[in-house]
Design a protein around this nucleic acid. Structure first.
Lengths: 215, 215
DNA sequence: TGTACATCAGTGAACGCGCGTTCACTGATGTAC
DNA sequence: TGTACATCAGTGAACGCGCGTTCACTGATGTAC
């Protein structure tokens, strides 16, 4: 039966939100429209009243996932203005994040899938990644004036790679080591720039099983 | 009709080799057994004479893909003994590698898929990653004595992350920038250690469209 | 404001298709004598 | 070494199933008068 316009729009948003989480959990190919719609309390027939195709939803859900993730970065940064980068790394490079793909970083959760998707999905990722880089760049600029955008790209790469690597191995201590060495490398990269001498002396010894080396 | 034992074993190896490339190209879920077997010149019915399940093949193909990739690293390193790390980065962080998933790094090509696979696939990745780390660790140890294994993990994370990021964006210059900043960051990380002063002065300015910053 | 009607979000069944897996069968290979 | 027979890698059809997509239908919503 028909539903009010605002209700329909609300349903649409719910589907996108649900899909942004279920795609991260199961991959674009790992979850069907039936389960996606069921997650939003609807049946699969309604899908094509809201979206042109599964690819269309994939692009919109990717956009939503990136927005929500970038929001978490900003929130962590503003909640800890003394060490915003440390706050971001504390949740990003944690074992909790490693073990929870559904609410985590979509680049790590869907990266190699997204590389095989079409232009629309990649456009969503591209826009979201630029937002990540803005947030990161602003953090880096505060402690390290030189080329903050280049630094931000390298830092993001290190973080995404470390999370990916930590997820494809069975051994939890190896997984944790990838996360901890990434924290360390990012700290050194951001505090080592000004004429070759380290600015900060923040220790970054990896704590083998703790969830995050917050320093 | 029956086939000689050595022919059967050869066929089996061919299937694993083909699968290691087609899984990287299409993802574990993106290619079916029929096409996998056809790629090896066989029909799908023969599959279960050689493998217990598709997951079984996924684990063996992952192992094969990692072995072949780690072989490429070693080859690049020994071919360029003066700058093995530079040689590895020259192909790993290149636009050619970005645009060719089939013969490229399985961690970048299958990383987020592998994170969702079972213990066997992850065991293949874990073993392969340790081999990568050995090769990298030896390179790092030559120029930078301290904690080569930790450095190797951070470098691998940066490289995997940069390649992944370069593949999920449409804009080729942004893709190239991810690769170039990764080269730069790895260079700085490996040559900046000894009491805070940089050892080498190798320039690492990114060359916007070239395939790799070889320096 | 009230009524008649058009719109369209959502339902649930159906479409064709390809999936992973199973199976009866084939016939060359490998083995026992 | 030669023969009889068991083995089993490979074939191709079939299995049940879930997929993305389409469609006739429903009935509350939105609109025209």
């Amino acid at each position: 039966m028909r539903v009010s316009r605002s209700q329909a729009e609300e349903n649409r948003q719910t589907v996108i939100n649900v899909a942004s989480r279920l795609f991260r959990e199961h991959g674009f190919d790992g979850i069907g429209l039936k389960d996606l719609m069921k997650g939003a309390g609807l049946t699969q027939g309604a899908f094509y009243k809201q979206f042109a195709s599964k690819d269309d939803l994939a692009a919109q859900a990717s956009k939503r996932a990136l927005e929500s993730a970038s929001g978490r970065w900003s929130a962590a940064a503003t909640a800890n203005p003394k060490d915003p980068l440390g706050a971001v790394m504390a949740f990003y490079l944690s074992m909790e994040h490693r073990d929870e793909m559904m609410d985590g970083c979509p680049i790590a959760a869907l990266g190699s899938d997204a590389a095989r998707q079409g232009t629309d999905v990649k456009a969503s990722f591209e826009a979201g990644i630029k937002a990540y880089l803005d947030v990161l760049g602003r953090m880096v600029a505060e402690t390290d004036g030189k080329e903050p955008q280049g630094k931000a790209m390298a830092i993001l790469a290190t973080m995404v790679g470390a999370l990916t690597l930590s997820r494809v191995v069975n051994d939890p201590s190896l997984a944790q080591a990838f996360l901890a060495t990434a924290v360390k490398q990012v700290r050194e990269a951001t505090f080592t720039r000004k004429n070759g001498r380290r600015l900060g002396t923040r220790s970054s010894k990896p704590r083998p099983q703790s969830s995050a080396a917050r320093n």
